[in-house]
Amino acid sequence: MKVIFLKDVKGKGKKGEIKNVADGYARNFLFKQGLAIEATPANLKELE
């Protein structure tokens, strides 16, 4: 799953980066902790 990092995550990505991560990792950790959001077309447009 592609995500947009909202904060730096050690060993995974830095704020503003778009990366592929495991679905479970994204849903169970990154999204719940507010560290990333899903890289949907709408979210990508907001990032620009």
Rank of each mutant, 00 (worst) to 15 (best):
K32S: 10
A42G: 11
A26V: 09
K45A: 14
A26R: 02
D8I: 03
D23T: 15
G13K: 00
I18M: 07
Q33G: 07
G24F: 13
K2G: 05
K14R: 13
V3Y: 01
K15V: 09
K15S: 07
V21H: 02
D23V: 15
F31Y: 05
F29I: 12
P41M: 10
I37E: 05
F31V: 07
M1K: 05
I37L: 10
A42V: 09
L35Q: 04
L6Q: 03
K2F: 14
L47Y: 15
I37R: 07
T40N: 08
G16M: 05
Q33L: 15
E46V: 13
K45F: 12
V3M: 03
L35M: 08
Y25I: 07
E46T: 13
A22H: 13
K14S: 10
A39I: 05
V21I: 09
N43T: 10
K12E: 11
D8T: 12
G13E: 02
D8S: 09
I18A: 04
N20S: 14
G24E: 15
G24M: 12
K32A: 13
D8L: 04
K2A: 11
K12G: 13
F29W: 13
A39W: 13
M1P: 04
A39S: 04
F31I: 13
A36I: 06
E48D: 11
G16I: 00
G13A: 11
F31A: 02
G34N: 09
L30N: 00
L44H: 05
K19H: 09
L6H: 01
K15R: 12
K10T: 11
T40V: 05
G24W: 15
F5N: 00
K2H: 09
N43E: 06
A26W: 11
F5M: 04
K19M: 10
F31D: 01
F5P: 01
L30P: 01
L35D: 03
K10N: 10
K45H: 10
L44K: 06
L6P: 00
I37K: 08
L30W: 03
L47V: 10
K14E: 07
G34A: 07
G24L: 12
K19E: 03
L35A: 04
E38F: 05
N43Q: 08
V21W: 02
T40E: 04
N28P: 00
A42K: 11
A36R: 00
A26N: 03
A42N: 12
M1G: 03
V3E: 01
L35H: 04
T40M: 05
A22D: 15
E46F: 14
L47Q: 09
P41F: 11
K10A: 14
F29V: 14
N43L: 12
K45I: 12
K12I: 15
Y25D: 06
G24K: 13
N43G: 07
P41G: 09
I37D: 02
M1D: 03
K2I: 13
E48L: 14
K7M: 12
L30S: 00
E48K: 11
L47D: 06
D23Q: 14
D8Y: 08
G24A: 14
K14D: 05
K14Q: 10
E17T: 06
D8N: 12
L6A: 02
L47R: 09
E46D: 11
K15Q: 09
E46R: 14
A42H: 12
K7E: 09
K32L: 12
I4A: 02
A22S: 15
Q33S: 09
E48T: 13
E17V: 03
L44N: 05
D8K: 04
F31L: 11
E48W: 11
D8Q: 04
L30T: 00
G11Y: 08
G34E: 05
K14A: 09
R27L: 12
E38H: 07
K7S: 10
G16L: 04
L6Y: 02
L30D: 00
N28Y: 14
L35E: 03
K7T: 11
F29Y: 14
A36M: 00
V9N: 01
N43A: 12
G11A: 05
R27W: 10
V9A: 03
A39K: 02
E48M: 15
D23I: 15
G34M: 08
N28I: 08
I4R: 04
L47P: 06
Q33I: 08
K32H: 08
D23L: 14
I18L: 07
K7N: 06
F29R: 06
V9T: 03
N20A: 11
A39E: 02
E17I: 03
K19Q: 07
I37F: 03
K14Y: 12
L35P: 00
F5K: 00
Q33T: 09
L35G: 02
K19S: 07
E17M: 06
G13N: 02
L44T: 07
D23N: 11
F31H: 00
R27I: 14
R27F: 10
Q33H: 15
K10V: 13
K45Y: 11
T40L: 06
G11T: 05
A26I: 09
